[in-house]
Amino acid sequence: MSGAACVSCGGIVSGRRREELVGRWSRALSRPATYPRIYRLVDSLPLCSSCLAEWQVIGTLICECCGRDMVNQVRNGEKMYQSPIGADFSQQERRVCKDCLAVQEKGNSLLRNRGLLPYDECGKAMLSRFKYRGDERMAAFFSALLAIEYYRSYHSAGFSCLSEVPLHESRLSDRGFNQMELVADGLSKRIGIPYIPLLKRSKQTAKLSQQRGKREREENMRGAFTCMYTGSQIGGIIRKQVREVLIVDDIYTTGSTLRACAAAIREALGHTCQVSALTCFR
C-alpha cells in the first residue's frame, strides 16, 4: 500500500512508523490463528501512520445483539440486560443494550450485528466520498474493514452465503452503482464465502436524512425487501443447506433496514435460517 494517498487525510501511506502501528492493531484485533490474515488486511488499508494512530475501533465490551460499543454507556451507569438470544435459537443468555431488549420483545429476525468502526466525522466523510461522490475505488477499503471484522467476530460461524442490502432500482440508476454490491463482492473474495444477491428492494423509502424517528423508520422499512429466490436452488447451493446467512451494509443506525432484510430472508428460506449482519460503521 506504500505510496498511495491516505483515504482519510490525503497524506502519503508509507514509513516505518506505520509498520509498527499495523502490527499493534493486528495484535489487538486478532487471535493467534487469525493474526497473519488480519495483519495483511490492516496493512492493505490505505491509511497513513498518523490516521492509524488515531484510529478508533469498537472494543470488546459491546451489546451482543447489535454490536454497539457499550464502554461509554456502562461508564455512565447504563445497565446491560440479560436476554435470550432469539425466540427460536438456543436458550443461551447474552448481554444486550436497552434498545435491543425492546426489539427482542417484539420479535427480532436479525440474530446479531457487528461493526468495526464507530460512525464519527471521519467515517462520515469517507462514506460520503464513496457513496455520493462515487469513488468506487473505496470499495476495496470498505471490504477490507468488513473482512477484519469478520475474522474478529464471525470466524467460527458457518455462513453459507453472504448478501448485500440492495438499492431501489430508481436510486440505483441515479447513482449508477450499488456501493454495497461492490463491497460484498470484494468481501466474498477475501473471506471465501459465496456472494449471492438474495434480496430486491420492492418499496422505495425516503432518504435516511429525511426520515424522522425510530418508529417511523421501522414502519417505513417493513416489507421494503423481498427475496428473489423461491425455488430449491439458491445460486448453486441447495436451499435446505442454507442455515446461516450474512448480510452486509455500510452502517447500522437503528437497525430497521437490516431487520427488514433479515425478515425477508427468513420469510423465504424458512425460520430455521439465521441471519447475521456485518457493517462497516456502528
Partner: peptide, 20 residues
C-alpha cells in the same frame, strides 16, 4: 476507471481525477 454502470447498463467508465 472502468465500471459496470447501472445507469446505462452498458460498459462505462468514470474519471477519478475530477471526481470531486
Amino acid at each position: 476507471v472502468l465500471t459496470r454502470c447501472h445507469s446505462c447498463r452498458q460498459g462505462c467508465a468514470y474519471c477519478t481525477e475530477c471526481l470531486d
